[in-house]
């Protein structure tokens, strides 16, 4: 596939991720939409790396993966803590800065 198809695909995935974050009610799904956006960026990075014939873009994908792993670990820990307090994963219910 030519470069433009890969980048268009990346744009489509990114927009779907954004819509997920904006529209969804469940924190876990919102979090998954963030992963979708990160993945969309990864596709673009790998495609541009191939376009330039260098590997630097691929290296960046590794760093994105490392950040995604760190983010998933901390984020899910926060959700567990919130769930212990409020017994819900609904963002519209989690509206207090303190309890």
């Amino acid at each position: 596939m030519p470069l433009v198809s890969y980048i268009s695909l990346s744009a489509v995935l990114f927009v779907i991720g954004v819509m997920g974050v904006l529209l969804k009610r469940n924190v876990l799904t919102i979090f998954m939409s963030i992963e979708l956006m990160l993945n969309a960026v990864n596709v673009a990075l790998a495609a541009f790396a191939r376009h330039h014939g260098g590997l630097d873009g691929q290296i960046f994908v590794f760093f994105v993966m490392a950040v995604a792993a760190a983010e998933a670990a901390v984020g899910l820990a926060i959700f567990i803590a919130i769930f212990r307090l409020k017994q819900t994963t609904d963002v519209t219910e989690i509206n207090l800065m303190r309890w």
Partner: peptide, 17 residues
């Protein structure tokens, strides 16, 4: 630095959960 980030995230996750 990514290694350090992962370590911090691990400690953070343990403390939070």
């Amino acid at each position: 630095l990514a290694g350090v980030l992962l370590l911090v995230a691990m400690v953070g996750a343990v403390v939070l959960a």
